[in-house]
Design a protein around this nucleic acid. Sequence first.
DNA 1: ATGAAAGCGCTAACAA
DNA 2: TTGTTAGCGCTTTCAT
Lengths: 350, 350
Amino acid sequence: MAITIKDVAKAAKVAPSTVSRVISNSPRISEKTKERVREAMKELGYHPNFNARSLANKSTKTIGLVMPNSANKTFQNPFFPEVIRGISAKVHQLDYGLYLSTGQSEDEIFEEVQDMVQGRRVDGIILLYSKVEDRVIKYLHEEQFPFVIIGRPYDDTLKGITYVNNDNFKAAKTVTEYLLLLGHKCIAFIGGNLDFVVTIDHMQGYDRALRNAGIEPRDDYIVFHEELQEGGQEAVIDLMSLPERPTALIVADDIMTFGVMRMLNEMEIHVPDDISIISFNNVMISELSTPPMTTVDINIYNLGYEGANCLIDLILHPDIGARKVIIPHKMIKRQTTQRLATNAVAPEVN
Amino acid sequence: MAITIKDVAKAAKVAPSTVSRVISNSPRISEKTKERVREAMKELGYHPNFNARSLANKSTKTIGLVMPNSANKTFQNPFFPEVIRGISAKVHQLDYGLYLSTGQSEDEIFEEVQDMVQGRRVDGIILLYSKVEDRVIKYLHEEQFPFVIIGRPYDDTLKGITYVNNDNFKAAKTVTEYLLLLGHKCIAFIGGNLDFVVTIDHMQGYDRALRNAGIEPRDDYIVFHEELQEGGQEAVIDLMSLPERPTALIVADDIMTFGVMRMLNEMEIHVPDDISIISFNNVMISELSTPPMTTVDINIYNLGYEGANCLIDLILHPDIGARKVIIPHKMIKRQTTQRLATNAVAPEVN
DNA sequence: ATGAAAGCGCTAACAA
DNA sequence: TTGTTAGCGCTTTCAT
């Protein structure tokens, strides 16, 4: 068996409880004995047993990460390593650990979350996605278990939920306005999975900007696709088959944009000369597209970092109220956007 | 407090030990009582306490994942979500959980691993990288703790280590030979971090193929870069500044290839007309480069899946010997390679 | 087939 | 300041 607190106690000629107090650095132990105990620990190579600790403590010092179902390709988005990096950073500072969900389907994930919560496997949970009708959110909320959402809850009836999000509505609106100012009138929107709240927020921002500009959004300019890569490509096929082709595209995700640009390239439609593109996220590779894409940097790392921050606060001070943190975004202008060529459509002079 | 085994026992009018036996589905309990107990569990919404279980059991049913230090951009490689997806799949089948390392530096990671091992936080560990001189590997080996490496140990003196790898030497050799057969003589190699074993294997495969073809490898055709994106771009600058430019590039990683192609594009060097490229990994986005890249599919998902498989075997049957699994790779020909244009260099007729 | 009780390694209330 | 002891929730002999 591994070496326990008793062994240390024996070696240092103190009681186990004293050792325990030394571990938690209790001020009620004299420096001399602390030293003695610490030495014994070093010598014996003592490491506290986690489960025993958690059991006695009712605190695991670990937080659970719930991903979207990993069967899906969604998971391959570099978004995830990056949020996790942010979460890791914060969590590590405060000596928390990370436990990962492994479920491949919604049902499996739901079960896992139940086990984490009821089995006291984690002290809190971060949801790495936000879906429209989500049992997990409802469950966590009912259980009053500490959790935070990266994104936002869709259901407004659920009060008191802490989340960390971007202002995705605003971002999409701004981006649309920008395209409008560049003279584009035919702006299409390629969204992700409609189950995700972010997709809805994007679309509404887009919609609003158009309407504000007096343009009636057209159904055939709005498409949604689940899959990241194929999705982008299919969307392009659909849109470019339209009698009146769009001159600008707003794409939900940088990875999708890669697919979009691939397909456009095959069709010999040039970016940005023939068509402008703006997308969202600004993951690491985004600047490596040819041409480098204009995109909205949503500060993924900070979404994670702040999420972890909020969660740990919530765990430590359960009485603290719910927080809603908005991480600022920023449009990164690169080379996929351009003023609408005047020969395309006669510009209104107004 | 949450509901415990005792509550269930009371409700079902049996002893706690009986409930425990029902949980582990012991054959020594009658079907009738099993039913009764199960019903009580359902009704009360019982979920076993994880830590209590682990403590009594000396088994946590969770495996630790050790990543390269996440401070580094390495972590952003879509490689990681994909291995994890493979690991998840296997691990989930057998009801294991995943615990993630969060260390940002080598020292932090080493400490974490120690805690995981000595603190009995996990039953086994998967190393998601393989570095040349690695304390973690040495430690795990000394402790005889169950672990597997994705990749391979560099130090041959460490016997009995289970690992799951590709034949990276062979892959690099084949790829070089392929380029040779396409008429290329000036083939450069852009490697990753030299601390990683895979980089060394790649380079040696490249080296061997050239020598076999009677070509002396040139130092200035071999460059290494740590960072994924910038790396690729800098490498191109270096190589294209050479008096005798390479006509083909072997790039360590698809993401790097994106950087390479970006830079090449800026220099108006056309792929594949002016220069051919082959890289490694075939992550999801690889097919979305323009033009789509020729790359070696290393079957990342399976690396993870098999790694998890081996580890769990190792945990369940500690007496089983070390295994070395080689996951097959496969060159995916897309559009970044081409026979050397004859006007570039006079081909030898031989 | 089932129950009683000890123990996994640690913490915390209570004593001293 | 330190020791004693009773749990934390579960598993597992050992009885019955």
